[in-house]
Design a protein around this nucleic acid. Sequence first.
DNA 1: TCTATATGTAAACTAAGCTTTACACTTTGA
DNA 2: TCAAAGTGTAAAGCTTAGTTTACATATAGA
Lengths: 66, 66
Amino acid sequence: MKNRLKVLRAERDLTQAQLSAALAVSRQTVNAIETGKFDPSLPLAFRISRLFELPIEEIFQDGDPL
Amino acid sequence: MKNRLKVLRAERDLTQAQLSAALAVSRQTVNAIETGKFDPSLPLAFRISRLFELPIEEIFQDGDPL
DNA sequence: TCTATATGTAAACTAAGCTTTACACTTTGA
DNA sequence: TCAAAGTGTAAAGCTTAGTTTACATATAGA
């Protein structure tokens, strides 16, 4: 699953540390999501969506064939 | 996190077994999500969203204060 | 009545999300 | 030049998502 987190964060001029604080997760979690190590949980995806004021579908793109 | 899965499934007259097959998960997973035992992963939420042709936000409602 | 279908739940397990601590590397600025 | 800030990554551990197997219960239909 791809995501636009890094770009959205850059647009708002936030560091990973600032974003992680705003999302109440560790910096490593933000980094791991940005670098594609894993996908956020659904609750975290909602928090990201609210923070950036964008629907989940505009932040995360599912390349799932199913 | 609340969801409208049970209602959406009923509207389409699907059994938990049929829905789980369509989503490629076990019936227990569908049941657990419907009964609020846990939230789906983001990839699974996308599959549910596509199957019901509804945005994730219209299926899952986040009651997260954060 | 007896059988099949649908649902709920439980235990034991694996896999994924997320944490803390820690370290390496690069870039920026005093 | 050297310290601070930003980023990437790794290990170990905990929590949550999802699995298989299995059983209990309810309802519908022949």
